[in-house]
């Protein structure tokens, strides 16, 4: 397959582009998302929620390349054979590129590792995601924004998942950035319109030493079923993922959230106790 811009050997299909033109396409699409949705200004201090995996590490690389004041913030969930490995990639990358890195763990926060709280063969994504968001928000207070590596695959899956489960509140909260709300550091997603596959190709071509490992819990999740179905649909109907998020943005309902303070930790939440505190209380009962 030839590059549609210059006739050189293509490294990716749809669009068919060579190394040089794919790099330009990829970086241009991330820049356009940042500009179009007002995700970042040059004066912003941004922390990148990183895991050492390809999405977040590529984002960190790119924001530094674009000249932003970016630092790395990582969460160690405690998943033996997975997170310990990806964090090694991250430490190595940050050391070589002189990027400040801070790591916080579930064990410090809750007294337990994630892999010690989940029964074998059971999904862990809901608990894991709640605690990760809690820790990221808690430790990002000195920054203007948190940038995450969420990509077109993640976001199109999320639209469908929230639709299938009639999650009205969550459905209205998606998009390339979260609203500015008291107690929350604003989250931004510069890879909102880039496919997971495109990020992988970019990381590979740039020789980024990233972990391509898959979380052992990933395939047990509901998301995994949606991912598989959506990938099947995308391969038959190219452009489906982008259509889903574009259409979603055009009909996104207004989000009205009543923000209160958690009685346990003071974090913003919608009830008396935040979900992270409820999980921690559950862990304490199990001990």
């Amino acid at each position: 397959m030839k590059c549609e811009k210059c006739n050189a050997k293509a490294v990716i299909e749809m669009p068919a582009l060579c190394n040089k033109h794919f790099t330009s396409y990829f970086e241009g699409k991330a820049k356009k998302t940042i500009k179009e949705f007002g995700l970042l200004e040059k004066k912003d201090r941004v922390c990148v929620a990183t895991s050492g995996g390809k999405d977040s590490l590529t984002l960190l690389y790119l924001l530094k390349k674009f000249g932003y004041d970016a630092e790395a913030l990582a969460v160690d969930e405690g998943i033996l054979g997975y997170r310990d490995q990806t964090l090694e990639f991250l430490k190595d990358f940050c050391e070589k590129n002189k990027i400040p890195l801070r790591i916080f763990s579930y064990e410090e926060e809750t007294g337990k590792r994630l892999d010690s709280t989940v029964e074998p063969g059971k999904p862990a994504c809901s608990t894991c995601g709640t605690l990760r968001r809690h820790l990221l928000n808690k430790h990002s207070k000195g920054y203007d924004k948190i940038a995450t590596g969420h990509n077109l695959d993640d976001e199109s899956q999320a639209v469908l998942m929230n639709l299938f489960k009639a999650q009205k509140k969550l459905f209205s909260r998606q998009g390339p950035k979260t609203k500015k709300m008291r107690g929350f550091t604003q989250k931004i997603k510069p890879f909102y319109f880039l496919k997971e596959k495109e990020i992988m190709v970019y990381a590979y071509l740039k020789g980024l030493n990233v972990s391509f490992a898959e979380c052992p819990f990933a395939r047990l999740s509901y998301r995994s079923q949606v991912r598989e179905a959506l990938n099947e649909y995308e391969s038959r109907n190219p452009g489906t993922k982008e259509n889903i998020v574009r259409k979603y943005l055009s009909i996104r309902p207004a989000s009205h959230q009543d923000v209160r303070s958690c009685t346990g930790c003071g974090s913003p939440c919608s009830g008396d106790f935040c979900k992270a505190c409820r999980i921690k209380a559950g862990f304490a009962l199990e001990s």
């Binding site: 895991s51 995996g53 390809k54 999405d55 999904p123 862990a124 994504c125 894991c128 995601g129 993640d154 997971e196 596959k197 990020i199 992988m200 590979y204 972990s211 391509f212 490992a213 898959e214 979380c215 819990f217 990933a218 999740s221 998301r223 995994s224 991912r227």
Partner: peptide, 8 residues
């Protein structure tokens, strides 16, 4: 054959 899927 490298998998592009990472997180959950």
């Amino acid at each position: 054959v490298l998998s592009v899927v990472s997180g959950g």
